[in-house]
Design a binder for these strands. Sequence first.
DNA 1: ATATCACATTAGATTTAGTCTAGCCTGCTC
DNA 2: GAGCAGGCTAGACTAAATCTAATGTGATAT
Lengths: 160, 160
Amino acid sequence: MNPGTIRKSLESSGLRCTPQRFAVMAFLMERPGHPTAAEIFEAVNRADPRCSRATTYNNLRDLVQAGLVREVAVEGRAARFDVKGLRHHHFICDRCGCVEDMEWYDVPRPPRGSLGKRTLRQCEVIFRGLCAKCAVSGADSGVRSLRSSVEEHLHVQRRD
Amino acid sequence: MNPGTIRKSLESSGLRCTPQRFAVMAFLMERPGHPTAAEIFEAVNRADPRCSRATTYNNLRDLVQAGLVREVAVEGRAARFDVKGLRHHHFICDRCGCVEDMEWYDVPRPPRGSLGKRTLRQCEVIFRGLCAKCAVSGADSGVRSLRSSVEEHLHVQRRD
DNA sequence: ATATCACATTAGATTTAGTCTAGCCTGCTC
DNA sequence: GAGCAGGCTAGACTAAATCTAATGTGATAT
Ligand SMILES: [Mn+2]
Ligand SMILES: [Mn+2]
Ligand SMILES: [Zn+2]
Ligand SMILES: [Zn+2]
């Protein structure tokens, strides 16, 4: 990824291009696998120890606020981060918690009236299930299959 | 809510109906506002100090695994819990982080082929924006409006 | 050139949210 | 009533993230 591009995207969002902020952004761009804050800190700090933990977290916060980076919360696991390139949805694995990109498509807005006084900014879809790796290996362990076997036994329809 | 109903739903999911487990479930049913684990612990423990923190968390884990309760992760905040009654989606407030129920509707499945070897269990929609309270009070502060003003200034289209 | 100011960064302490441990209790079966 | 499994407890522990108080950096003003 061209350094000039990162520089420009930072500055056009009103953020100064400091070495630390640049490094966080560059790492996110060259590693599109939704790393956690801890992973980002470790990698950036190893490459250049001039970026402390507090700075990594501060910069992630700033990048999210500026709309350049997305934070993805995952149940029971550390948050993951994602440079906002092309629009996309997310698939989250029930077993390993990994986050994967899914092709984007338009989501129908909520039915008229159900919104009340709320202000809608975004509709996103989250797909859940087993990632390719988890679906293949030992397809019969983990949360997902525990659930399945309970339901199978009870002939119950799960409601989400 | 009828105690018998709770009892039955626990047992038909293969969970024993202990006083502590019942209390957690009962609290979730009579307080449909997506409380955090800490709130649940505090309330249940106050009503009956025989339910410790570990037990509250263990029971929440068991209830989620059994499919009776849903856990909702929220960026930068504690997870929230939700009894699975009628199907519904969620609205999460950008500013205060509250989680609100939204009328359910069918979500189009991901386009054929984009799923690969993954196993799909669920598609859920998450709406984001400002809740009624936050939309009304001081509609011009907070993350949302910082973003908006940056974009307005730059004439930039946000991509999610 | 020097002062000033806002913003950025730092190491490490602190808080928050949740998990783990080791032992005890309770109800069921033999 | 011994044995056993599941459940419960207090409190220690851990992971993730935030806060604090001090320092650094670079732009502008004098
Ligand atoms: Mn992504
Ligand atoms: Mn809900
Ligand atoms: Zn997986
Ligand atoms: Zn709100």
